[in-house]
Simulated scan of single mutants.
Amino acid sequence: MKQGKLVPIHNVQKADECIDFLLKRPRLEMVGLGMLYGRPGLGKTTYASRAAYARGYVYIRLEATTTPKTFAKELLQNLYRSLGMGDYLPVGTTNNIYKQCIQLLLDNEDTVIIIDEIDYAFRYPQLLGSVRDLVDETFAVVILVGMQNAMDRLNQINAYYFDRCNYFYEFEAVSKDDIRMLGTELMNIPCPESLVNYIHFNAAGNLRKAIKIMHMLEVRSKINPIPAMNHI
């Protein structure tokens, strides 16, 4: 299978629309905060990481151990890289590091920051507040990526924060059209309609499962002639 491609399936197109909308917003009237969320296996992290790599966005994946300081340090390091300023090892207090981040974002208004696994921040008000300050103090676009209940949890935790979010998109189940496009773009074997139907049925809308099935079919094709797969 071809690896690392960001195939423009439905969810990818909608997520792109989110970022495009926020980049083109009236910046003095609206902050650049958006959220992508949905069930596991629908391609949220794949989109976030690959879009960031392809387009020069800043990508940060939160972890259970992330603190406001580790977040600020990782953000500053990633900003330096994405802006072509080389590697940088942040030192100093959390506040000092964070001020450096803010200044870089003020100097580079079109910066897009994607924060994956935002659910981890829901347990730490200070970390969530640090993210909120990014959009309140700069013109940067900040995209939060979380699980299926992320939108509701954000509203429960901080209604003001929720109201600041100007775009929500919930990732949907992978459609047959998506499977057809993925098969054409990613598979190294032909993907006739019978194969599209087979993958779609067995993946049950889950992108991760669909990719695994495609890989297994390619492995099988080395043993069985491809025409025989038309009868799956």
Rank of each mutant, 00 (worst) to 15 (best):
Q3K: 11
V7K: 07
I9T: 07
H10K: 04
N11Y: 08
K14R: 12
K14Q: 10
D16M: 13
D20Q: 06
F21G: 04
F21Q: 10
L23N: 01
K24L: 06
R25N: 04
M30E: 12
V31H: 08
V31S: 10
M35Q: 11
L36R: 14
Y37A: 09
R39D: 14
P40E: 07
L42N: 06
K44Y: 11
K44D: 15
K44N: 12
T46D: 02
T46F: 15
R50V: 01
A51V: 15
A54F: 13
R55P: 09
G56C: 11
G56Y: 03
Y57H: 09
I60W: 02
I60R: 01
R61N: 07
L62Q: 00
L62G: 02
E63G: 12
K73L: 13
E74H: 08
L76Y: 02
Q77R: 15
N78C: 02
L79H: 09
R81I: 10
M85I: 05
L89C: 05
V91M: 11
G92Y: 05
N95D: 14
I97K: 02
I97M: 02
Y98M: 14
K99E: 15
I102V: 15
I102N: 07
L105Y: 10
L106G: 12
L106M: 11
N108L: 02
N108W: 05
N108P: 11
E109G: 05
D110V: 12
D110Q: 07
D110C: 08
V112Y: 03
V112S: 04
I113W: 04
I113Y: 06
I115N: 11
D116L: 12
E117N: 13
I118T: 11
D119G: 05
Y120T: 11
A121G: 03
A121K: 00
F122C: 08
Y124P: 12
P125R: 07
L127H: 02
S130V: 07
S130R: 07
L134V: 05
L134I: 06
T138C: 14
T138V: 13
T138F: 12
V141S: 06
V142Y: 04
L144M: 10
V145S: 08
G146V: 02
G146R: 12
Q148S: 13
Q148Y: 13
D152K: 06
D152H: 07
L154C: 10
Q156R: 09
F162P: 01
N166P: 13
Y167K: 01
F168C: 14
F168M: 09
F168D: 00
F171H: 11
A173Y: 14
A173P: 14
V174Q: 08
V174R: 12
K176L: 06
D177W: 05
D178E: 05
R180G: 01
E185H: 13
L186W: 08
N188W: 05
I189E: 10
I189C: 10
C191D: 03
C191L: 04
P192Q: 12
N197E: 02
N197T: 00
F201P: 00
N202D: 03
A204K: 15
G205R: 01
L207R: 04
I213W: 02
M214F: 08
M214A: 10
H215V: 00
L217N: 03
R220P: 08
I223V: 15
I223D: 02
N224P: 00
P225T: 01
P225V: 00
P227M: 12
P227K: 11
A228S: 14
